[in-house]
Structures are given as structure tokens and as C-alpha cells.
């Protein structure tokens, strides 16, 4: 554990709390992509299968349980409790275009040819693109509630912080995880456009609006 990873994980934790706060306080999941949330639940469930047979640490265990539970809870809120506030007609990204290629990539790039390792690889690739339906929706509507942009910023910060973490681990532990690093860099790059608008508009007190 190093400071970058800890801050990254805390940022990830914060992003989920912000998302829950957004849904509860506005009593609405408007502006949130159900598809992205469903992909995250898939990511956590396929990645954290090792909960059942591999003990890393209490920290690791608690975080994994939290990420699985909170992502499923968000799906419940969107699908049942606040269902009328979710508009599927603007959440139109075709997730099969993500799931298929990620499955193929997992078959090509993995550390061991076992089911848990293939699912782990799949989850890494899927996480790297899981935000796309959300960003696509943002692009379509051209605007977002400020709290939703804070959610995305915290999520992006989590990914960005994992990069110095890998550099640090490379130097101090001689540890490199090429699959996670490659997918992680792609994932972080997807946020660059969003971050530009977030820093130049939202943090200056303006509404998140994309140029027409």
C-alpha cells in the first residue's frame, strides 16, 4: 500500500458516496447511465471472486464487499426505487460492443488460463471502458448536474491516482502488472475531455455544459 493507491481507493469510495448522495438528495437518477452502473457491478463481481479463496487483508476484504454491495444497491435504486426518473431513451450506448471485445481481450491477455484469472482480465478490460455509456449520455444531453460531475471527477481521480501508484510500485517493489497498467492508462485517458470541462467550468462555479 502506498499513498497514491490509498488516495485512489478513497477517491473511488468517495465517488460512490457522492453518487448515492446525488440519487437520495435529488430523489432521482436523472443523468446517470444505468448501463455504466450495470457494467461496474459486473466488473466488481467478476473481479472479486477471489474473496472466496484468497485473503489479502482486512482493508482489501472490506473494500471489495463495499464495492460489490454498493454497485448492486445503485442498480436496485435505479431499477426499482427511482425507476420513473431513469430515461432509457438517452442511455443508448450498445454495451455488447464493449462486452464482446473485452471477452476476446481476456482470452488473449491473461496471467493464467483459469476461470478466475480470465474473469479477472475481463473485469480489468471492462472497467477501462465501463464509463463510456455514461460519457456518451453526457455528450448526448450536453449538460450535467454539478453533483453528477463531482461523481465523475472522483471516479476519474481514482483512476488517475493508480498511475503514480504503479510507477511507485515499479521502483519500490519491482512489481509491474502490464494488463492492469495498459487498461488503466486507457481508462484514465477517457476522462481527459471530461476533466478539461470540469476544471474550466464546474470548478469555476459554472454549470457543466458542452459546446453545442
Amino acid at each position: 500500500m502506498n499513498i497514491f493507491r490509498l488516495l485512489g481507493d478513497l477517491s473511488h469510495l468517495a465517488s460512490i458516496l457522492i453518487l448515492l448522495q446525488k440519487i437520495q438528495s435529488t430523489r432521482s437518477c436523472r443523468g446517470i447511465s444505468f448501463k455504466t452502473q450495470a457494467l461496474y457491478a459486473t466488473v466488481f463481481i467478476t473481479r472479486y471472486l477471489d474473496l472466496f479463496y484468497d485473503w489479502v487483508s482486512l482493508y482489501n476484504f472490506v473494500m471489495k464487499i463495499f464495492f460489490i454491495a454498493s454497485s448492486c444497491y445503485v442498480l436496485y435504486l435505479m431499477k426499482y426505487k427511482y425507476r420513473p426518473t431513469h430515461d432509457p431513451s438517452i442511455d443508448t450506448f450498445r454495451v455488447e460492443y464493449l462486452l464482446g471485445p473485452c471477452a476476446v481481450l481476456a482470452l488473449l491477455f491473461h496471467y493464467r488460463f483459469t476461470l478466475p484469472e480470465l474473469l479477472w482480465s475481463f473485469s480489468i478490460f471492462l472497467e477501462s471502458v465501463a464509463i463510456l455509456p455514461q460519457l456518451f449520455m453526457l455528450q448526448r444531453t450536453g449538460e450535467a448536474e454539478t453533483i453528477t460531475t463531482h461523481y465523475l471527477a472522483a471516479l476519474g481521480a481514482y483512476r488517475a491516482l493508480y498511475i503514480p501508484n504503479w510507477i511507485y510500485r515499479w521502483f519500490t517493489e519491482d512489481m509491474v502488472d502490464p494488463i492492469a497498467v495498459t487498461a488503466g492508462i486507457v481508462q484514465t485517458a477517457l476522462y481527459l475531455d471530461f476533466f478539461y470541462v470540469y476544471f474550466t467550468k464546474v470548478l469555476q462555479g459554472q454549470k457543466f455544459e458542452l459546446p453545442a
Binding site: D9, H12, D50, V56, N60, K64, D174, D177, P178
Partner: peptide, 10 residues
Amino acid sequence: AHDEHGHDEL
């Protein structure tokens, strides 16, 4: 090298 003890990152 890849961590032989499994995946310790979240």
C-alpha cells in the same frame, strides 16, 4: 514480475 500471490489491488 507479476505478483504471484494474486491481485492485491482493487
